[in-house]
Deep mutational scan, measured.
Amino acid sequence: KEQQNAFYEILHLPNLTEEQRNGFIQSLKDDPSVSKEILAEAKKLNDAQA
């Protein structure tokens, strides 16, 4: 469930490039146990690119 939530949120971050988004999603698939950390990174990058 946590992985699904992170997946959904990353898909809807407006400021990520397609490449960045795909990278985060691939990381989620590779290691779902760190989905919280991956989501935090994605949000940080999204904010930095706002």
Rank of each mutant, 00 (worst) to 15 (best):
K1L: 12
K1Q: 14
K1C: 04
E2D: 12
E2Y: 02
E2V: 05
Q3K: 05
Q3R: 03
Q3F: 14
Q4S: 08
N5L: 10
N5Q: 14
N5H: 13
N5E: 13
F7Q: 10
F7I: 08
Y8E: 12
I10T: 02
I10R: 01
L11W: 15
L11A: 10
L11C: 02
L11Q: 08
H12A: 13
H12D: 06
H12V: 08
L13Y: 07
P14D: 07
P14E: 04
P14L: 10
P14S: 09
P14Q: 13
N15H: 13
L16R: 00
L16M: 02
T17N: 10
T17D: 05
T17G: 03
E18I: 11
E19T: 11
E19F: 14
Q20D: 03
Q20W: 02
Q20N: 02
Q20H: 02
R21K: 06
R21S: 03
R21M: 06
N22G: 07
N22T: 14
N22S: 13
N22R: 14
G23M: 15
G23A: 14
F24I: 02
I25K: 03
I25D: 01
I25L: 08
Q26W: 12
Q26D: 05
S27M: 09
S27K: 07
S27G: 07
S27I: 11
L28Y: 05
L28P: 00
L28Q: 01
L28V: 07
L28S: 02
L28H: 01
K29N: 08
K29Q: 10
D30A: 14
D30R: 15
D30Q: 13
P32G: 06
S33T: 13
S33M: 10
S33C: 04
V34E: 08
V34M: 10
S35K: 07
S35N: 06
S35W: 15
S35F: 15
K36V: 08
K36M: 11
K36Q: 07
E37C: 08
I38P: 00
I38Q: 02
L39G: 02
A40H: 10
A40D: 06
A40L: 07
E41I: 13
E41M: 13
A42E: 00
A42R: 00
A42L: 01
A42D: 00
K44Q: 09
K44G: 07
K44N: 08
L45I: 09
L45H: 03
L45Q: 08
N46V: 02
N46H: 03
N46C: 02
D47K: 12
D47G: 11
A48N: 11
A48D: 11
Q49Y: 13
A50L: 08
A50N: 11
A50Y: 12
